[in-house]
Computed example of a mutant assay.
Amino acid sequence: MSRTRRIIYWLATLVLASGLVGSGVQQLLRIENKGAVAPPYAWGIVELGYPVYILTILGTWKLLGAVMIVIPKYPLFKEWAYAGLFFLLTGALFSHVAAGSAWLEWIPAIFLLVLTVVSWYLRPADRKLPQP
């Protein structure tokens, strides 16, 4: 693997993991805001029509996915993590489109989706499933 490709891979992977950890922790904390209809970081979920409890599921999977794509070994789990992140982020994007959200609200999902694809595509051979 060339040095440039390795740098792009790690940059994309670490930025992706950081975004997943940041949003996952925010979703898991679910701090109540007195007088608000929904807790901070939950208003978007409520506006999209999802129940607030989905934040626990999403936050947990984001944290597990972030850990899995960064740690060495376990190529099968990495494949599952990348697939899950792809489904999560395309689902988020479609939810925003279906709910009629402004295009600016699509940007985080698109950004993380692009990072997911780049990280998956550029991953080193030792992070891929062995070819039969």
Rank of each mutant, 00 (worst) to 15 (best):
M1A: 04
S2H: 10
S2D: 11
S2N: 13
T4V: 14
R6A: 13
I7N: 03
I7C: 05
I8H: 04
Y9Q: 04
W10M: 11
W10K: 10
L11A: 14
L11H: 01
L11K: 06
L16N: 02
S18K: 00
G19H: 03
G19C: 08
G19P: 05
L20I: 00
G22C: 06
G22I: 06
G22R: 06
V25F: 08
Q26C: 07
L28W: 02
I31M: 10
I31A: 10
E32S: 11
E32L: 04
N33K: 02
G35Y: 10
A38C: 10
Y41C: 01
Y41L: 06
G44I: 03
I45M: 14
I45R: 13
V46A: 08
P51E: 10
V52P: 08
V52M: 07
I54N: 13
T56M: 03
T56W: 11
G59R: 04
W61T: 03
G65W: 01
G65Q: 03
A66Y: 02
M68R: 04
I71M: 11
I71W: 10
P72D: 09
K73F: 14
P75Q: 00
P75W: 03
L76S: 04
F77V: 02
F77K: 00
F77D: 00
K78H: 01
K78V: 00
E79D: 14
F86M: 10
L88Y: 09
L88R: 05
L89V: 08
L89C: 13
T90R: 08
T90C: 13
L93W: 09
F94S: 15
F94V: 15
S95R: 14
S95H: 12
A99I: 09
W103T: 10
L104D: 13
L104M: 14
I107R: 09
P108Y: 04
A109D: 05
L113G: 07
L115C: 02
T116K: 03
T116Y: 01
V118Y: 01
S119M: 01
S119D: 00
W120G: 01
L122M: 11
R123A: 03
P124R: 01
A125H: 09
A125Y: 05
K128A: 10
K128V: 06
P130V: 11
Q131T: 14
P132T: 15
P132V: 15
